[in-house]
Amino acid sequence: MRYAILLMGAPYSTQASHSALRFARAVVARGHRLECVFFYHDGVHNAARLAAPPQDEPHLVDGWIALHTEHGVSLQVCIAAALRRGLMDQREASRHGKAGYSVEAPFELVGLGQLVDLGLDCDRLVTFGP
């Protein structure tokens, strides 16, 4: 089956991100295809390249990147939700005249239309939120 995940919870604030990552691992372990994790609402904070959690806690950002590297899962971040929360890649940072950037590949900033297409194309879209 082709799955996608919609994640709307901020990392470390609620269980949503941890549960989503564990669910993602379970989906691929069962031999299903996980097309994409779409980050929306406070979930966009999962794409923060500067996240530095204590070493004895799971590193969620690295967890998403590993999922991409090992299984080709695309990591799509809603650009509007990201920008207003201070999350932007190098291109957006220069467009907005910002000194630094907070999002980098394999996370991609995309429009909400991607979420609509994903929800309709995949067999299952599973939402995790606070």
């Binding site: 939700a81 429009g111 239309g113 979420l115 609509v116």
Partner: peptide, 19 residues
Amino acid sequence: SSWLREGLDIALVGAAFDR
């Protein structure tokens, strides 16, 4: 909260994509 606004944004995008 921004839940309502960010939900409605999807309505507009969906409609703009002829859904």
